[in-house]
């Protein structure tokens, strides 16, 4: 990079520099509007573990459940294993492609009294869901009202959404979906399924099935800011604890419990299809913190180029000045 800098070329360079600098991320993007998102509040002190919500969920969403074609195509290499729940549709003690909501139970001591706490568990519908944001094909989507759902017509079943979900919520069913029409032996492995918070019912102005049928009114749904206010008031009133307000940067499923979630987490069964209740840091926030590096990069590049040009220009001028005159 050599040469003298004329005023004209400096202006041209400046314009190019502005164009590149404009490639930085607008600050407004960081402060997205949470007000349009709907959240659910679950007062688990009220839950009696009757399972009405689980039954209603299965009934209402039955039409969305997979109908895999068998035998499944052989996959290469054989590390990719089929995951088949089609013969175990009745399993309801964990999350499966045919069971998007289940009741978790914990034997704990409340005010010196032994008690079993029951907790309806399903997708947390994160405010900034990694399953949606990190899906390489855009198969998972977040609706304007905060619902995250997986499009069964687009999902290839790579299960990245499950790997990046702090609770490993989505569950795979092999032998169904788009991958069968592409390269079933070499890419994809079915479709991922999870709670879509009855998005179709909500679009018709109806509540999710689990909320509608609950005999104890454990759950309610509303704008996130109102639900957070109610959760805080309820926790204060009952001397309870909140889960979901800040987990993974904030979720649209807020639990209020009479027992600390640390204690509950020790008492529940966790594992595949059985999500934990641990504290969770903001998965997407960590990468988004690298925004500064992305914003500074073009400015640093321009500064380095201008500095190099200036240095070379000075050196050339010195050589010219020091050269013996004929």
């Amino acid at each position: 990079m050599t040469g003298n800098i004329s005023r004209r070329s400096f202006i041209k360079g400046g314009l190019a520099a502005c164009a590149v600098a404009a490639s930085g991320i607008p600050a407004s993007a960081a402060g997205a509007d949470k007000d349009k998102q709907l959240a659910t509040l679950l007062d688990i002190g009220k839950c009696i573990g009757c399972g009405a919500c689980v039954e209603a969920c299965s009934e209402i969403n039955a039409e969305k459940y997979p109908e895999p074609k068998k035998p499944f195509p052989r996959m290469y290499p054989d590390r990719a294993k089929p995951e088949d729940w089609s013969d175990k549709k009745d399993v309801n003690d964990r999350l499966t492609p045919y069971n998007w909501l289940y009741i978790q139970s914990a034997d704990v001591t409340v005010n010196g009294e032994q008690k079993t706490i029951t907790i309806p568990r399903r997708c947390m519908h994160c405010v900034n869901p990694p399953c949606v944001k990190l899906c390489p094909w855009g198969s998972a989507k977040q609706l304007e009202n905060g619902i995250s759902r997986i499009d069964p017509d687009l999902c290839l079943g790579g299960a990245k959404c499950r790997d990046v979900c702090p609770w490993e919520i989505p569950q795979r069913q092999t032998g169904t979906g788009l991958y069968l029409d592409i390269l079933p032996a070499f890419a994809g492995n079915g479709v991922m399924y999870k709670c879509d918070r009855c998005y179709n019912r909500i679009s018709e102005g109806k509540p999710p099935a689990c909320i509608e049928v609950c005999p104890e009114n454990v759950q309610e749904i509303g704008p996130r800011n109102e639900i957070i206010k109610k959760a805080l008031a309820l926790a204060k009133e009952t001397n309870g604890y909140i889960y979901g307000e800040n987990e993974n940067g904030g979720t649209n499923t807020i639990y209020v419990s009479p027992v600390s979630f640390e204690e509950l987490n020790k008492a529940i069964k966790t594992g595949k299809g059985k999500p934990h209740l641990k504290a969770v840091s903001d998965s997407m926030g960590k990468a988004n913190n690298l925004l500064a590096a992305l914003a500074i990069a073009p400015i640093a590049g321009i500064a380095a180029a201008v500095g190099t040009l200036y240095k070379n220009s000075r050196r050339e001028n010195e050589v010219k000045r020091d050269a013996p005159k004929e």
């Binding site: 050599t2 590096a293 992305l294 073009p298 590049g301 180029a305 040009l309």
Partner: peptide, 24 residues
Amino acid sequence: YMHYICAALLIGFSAYIITGYVMA
């Protein structure tokens, strides 16, 4: 994270090359 960091470097290089090319 690595993709973001490399993207920052690539944008920096692009800015460096474009500025140098346009100016001199």
